[in-house]
Structures are given as C-alpha cells and as structure tokens.
Design a protein around this nucleic acid. Structure first.
Lengths: 223, 223
DNA sequence: GACATTACATGGCATTGCTATGCAATGCTT
DNA sequence: AAGCATTGCATAGCAATGCCATGTAATGTC
C-alpha cells in the first residue's frame, strides 16, 4: 500500500470542535451541569459529534482543560513588562488570580485531572512565563546569585494554586486573595534574596493596581 | 402531643454507618471506583442502607470527607511537642504531607467539595493545631510581635495544600515535597520574624527526621 | 401483647455515557 | 463524469448509575 494518506470527505470539520469546547466552558461558567446530551442540545449536533471529535466525554474534558490552560497562558503573556522585575512577578500572580476568579468552574475543571492534557506542555508554558520573570529578577540583581528562579516560580505557583483552589470552592472568601497572595509572594521573593522593603513595595504596587482597575465581573467579548 | 421523643426500633444501628464509610475510604485507597452498588456489595447490606444512613451518595461522600478530616486532625494532634516551636510547626507540615501521601485518593476526595462537610468545624480544628503552634512560636519570641499566627498558619496550609494537591494528582513527583515544603516554610516563617538561620535549622530538622523514620507504606492498624 | 416506628430488602425508573448500525456527503481515481 | 472509498454524523438502543416507591421484618413503648 503505497499511500496511507486518508481522504477527507464530508464538510471537513468546520469548527464544531471549538464550538463544543466553548459551549462546555460556557456551561461551566453558568454552573449548568455539563452532560453529553445537554452539551449538544443547542448546537443542533448529535451526541456522536462528541465521539468523532473527542472520543468521548473524557476527551471533551481534556479539550476543555486544554482551553483553560491556553487562556491562562494568553492572559499571563499579556501582562506588560515594566522596569521592575519583582513587580512583574507579582503582576503575573495578579493575572493568574484574576483568570481563576473570572471563571472559577473552569479553573476547577482544569485542575480536576490536570495530569491528563492533550498537550501537557501547555501547563508548563504558563509556568515558563513566571520562570522568565523570576530569571530576570535574578539577572537584575534582585535575587541572590544562588537563587533558583525555577524553584522560586514553582513555589509561587504552588502557593497561589493552593489559595485559589480553596477560594474557588468557596472555602475562603475572594477578598482574602490579595493579602495572602501578596504576603506569601513577599515571603518567597524575600527568601530568594530581594530586599524586604523593596520587595514589599513592588508586590504591593502590583496588587494595588489590580484592585483599582479590574472590574468585578469582566465582560466576555468574542469568546 | 406531649411527647415527640421517637422510639428506636430495629437493631438500633450497630455500626453499619462506619463500616460503609471505612469501606468507601478503603476502596478509594485501592483506586476502585466507589459506586453505590459496588460499595454495598461485600457488606451484605442493600443499596437502601446508603439512603437511610446518608440520604444518598452525596451524603456518603460528605461522611467520607468528614472521616478524612478527622483522621487528619488525629494525626496532627499526635505530633509531639518539643522545646522548639518552629520545629513543631514544620513537624505539623510533615505530618500533613504524610497523611496526604498515605492516602492520596482520600485527600483528593476531601478537597473535592470541601465546602460541604457534616461538621465544617472539623477542618478548622486541624488548622487550629497549626495556629496554636504558630502562636507558641510568637509567644516564645521566634516571631515578631506584630506577626499574626493565624495568618501565618493559613499561608503555610495554603502552600502545603497547593503542593500536595498537585503531587497527589501526579503532576509533581512525590520527592519534591520535602524541599518545596521546607523552603516555603522557611520563607513564610522567616517573614513572620524568625531568625533565618535558626528557622532553617528548625525546619530542616523536622523534615530530616521525617525522611529517615517514616516508612514508605504505612500499615493500617485498626482503622 | 398490640401498635407505632424504624432499618432495610426488592424491584423498577430516569439519566448517564457509550456504541452498533445506517446514511449521506465529500474527495480521489479512472 | 461516474464510481468508490472514506468519513461525519443521526438514530436507536444498551449497560450502569443514582434514586425512590413499596413491602417486610425487627424493635421499643404503652
């Protein structure tokens, strides 16, 4: 058989895949139960569409988690770079928290089985943004020379995830996020070698800016 | 109706409640799917037992989470008190991690819907043990006077939970737990006012002791 | 000893995810 | 251009799940 290139019949997949994923994310945000039949109900598609595109509901959830990590990465990548690298590290934390609080159900779904992703590197890409900011902080002399930016970034992420996963579940109220995030960030970044006063100033500035400018409920443009 | 005291007929509930909860915890530990019928299969009981005792599967899960937090509290309360309060704080972290890693599925179940518990105070009791240790550290002069033991303890818990929830899901390997836990604890406790060198010594000692003495798989005595 | 109250066994129901089957639409081949 | 293979998907039905209506037996109270 000289050719195992497959033909591509039928409408060649318009974008029903993405529509289903986005509908699932929307239903998650609206706290509606995402079930196979309720998912395809409005779309005009049949339940089989889920199987041809995702192989089943676990595959759909994988795609939803993937979408969640993609949005997270976009949001982190959009954080502007300023002259203060420690501020930028904290600003990434602000963006991370905002992303989680804007769509809590999606955040829960993301980490419900985070070990299973279509592209496992997608989660790493988000962390890489934070690692890069931490590396810059060390290069610019804010950290001690023997500080490990990857380790510092990981610990910031771990602490932030612990906080947000509990807030998202309603165990802790949303308003504790800024203080706990800022204080933990100051502790970890100071431990990495930054000057305590300068570190606090940088971190507090990032969180203050967030509190004033970010709207309570953020509009969903084209999504 | 002068008397609304109810009669108590039938075998008066031997301990089928506890047996079901423990069987569910055991099935979780064995990674067997815990379903209504598979749960009651070996016990000789019928599916209705779950409804008379728990009102349904959500009620069973509530009871399982409750059991998880009870075991956690027992484990934390069993941590011996030494002359070094900062060491004791870290030792509580060691116990917390050991509890989670000994039964990862139970840990996942506990925080799967941690907002719904039979006795919501049970979770707080575990944290209270940590708060008490932190308070002692401040009383004995290891923290600065304006440090808030409850806030410090909460941040330690948040960071630990973030780390363990990801380890338990297989995102991070188990062997990163000691280092991340210890470093984060040192950062947070130093930020609370402890002397950096003394703090590191106390924390490292707690984690070293854990690594040498704790067996890989811990036997389950009477539980 | 009769009765009320409760624990539980039985069987069936709605919903869930899933899949076997059939049909129609598309691109490749000749 | 006609035939054909390949694929997307609609239909219908299956196994399993949680749940509940009903009936029954056991217990404490009067």
């Amino acid at each position: 058989m000289p050719c195992n290139v497959k033909a591509m019949p039928r409408t060649a997949d318009p974008d029903v895949r993405r529509r289903l994923v986005e509908r699932a994310a929307r239903m998650l945000a609206d706290r509606e139960p995402v079930t196979l039949r309720s998912l395809v109900e409005g779309t005009g598609a049949s339940t089989m569409a889920v199987y041809t595109h995702f192989g089943g509901m676990p595959g759909l959830w994988r795609a939803v988690r993937q979408e969640g990590f993609t949005r997270l990465h976009e949001r982190l990548a959009a954080v502007p770079r300023t002259a203060d690298p420690v501020h930028d590290v904290a600003a990434l934390g602000v963006a991370y928290a905002a992303n989680a609080l804007d769509s809590p159900s999606l955040y829960r779904a993301m980490f419900d089985a985070v070990a299973e992703l279509e592209d496992p590197a997608a989660a790493d890409r988000g962390l890489a943004v934070l690692v890069a900011a931490a590396s810059r902080a060390r290069e610019e002399g804010r950290f001690s020379a023997d500080a490990d930016p990857a380790a510092v970034a990981t610990r910031l992420w771990l602490a932030g995830h612990g906080l947000l996963s509990l807030v998202v579940q309603g165990v802790l109220p949303r308003d504790v996020v800024p203080e706990h995030s800022a204080e933990t960030a100051v502790a970890l970044l100071t431990a990495a070698g930054d000057d305590p006063a300068a570190c606090r100033a940088s971190v507090v500035r990032a969180w203050e800016r967030a509190g004033t400018s970010r709207p309570r409920v953020r509009p969903r443009p084209g999504h």
